[in-house]
């Protein structure tokens, strides 16, 4: 069964500034609590979670003009997964970041989605510091 979770947060910082971090796939572990390492090789990214679990990912889209980043976790525990991060300009000094998790099994959407909620909080903290 399929699950879809979406979180969002408003950040008082320009969309370009936020995108500079979010759009860099090798820096995910700097703003996603619980991801302790991150390596990128072409369109393949491997993250390591706080429990030492490596999870391979495929980068699907890294579109600076739309400020949209999409990736898929390809670990066997997922039948399907698609993560989408959108950075949307609200005004020159404020943006909205939307982090969506669509996956099967649905319970993993809650688990990964919980992580993304924490990531958005940390992103805001860093960008507004």
């Amino acid at each position: 069964m399929y699950g879809s979770i979406r979180h969002h947060i408003r950040i008082r910082r320009s969309a370009d500034d936020v995108w500079a971090l979010v759009g860099d796939p090798a820096r995910l572990h700097t703003w996603f609590p619980g991801i302790v390492d991150c390596t990128v090789d072409g369109t393949t990214r491997v993250i390591t979670t706080g429990v030492g679990l490596p999870m391979p990912e495929r980068i699907v889209m890294n579109d600076g003009s739309q400020r949209r980043f999409q990736y898929e976790i390809t670990a066997p525990m997922f039948r399907t997964h698609r993560g989408t991060i959108d950075v949307i300009e609200l005004d020159p000094d404020e943006c909205l970041v939307v982090y969506s998790t669509d996956c099967e099994p649905r319970a993993m959407a809650l688990v990964i989605g919980g992580g993304t909620a924490g990531a958005l909080d940390e992103l805001k903290r860093q960008m507004e510091a």
Binding site: G34, T49, V51, V111, G115
Partner: peptide
């Protein structure tokens, strides 16, 4: 706190 915690948060 939740048990399912792969990110060790």
């Amino acid at each position: 706190e939740p048990f399912l915690d792969p990110f060790a948060r």
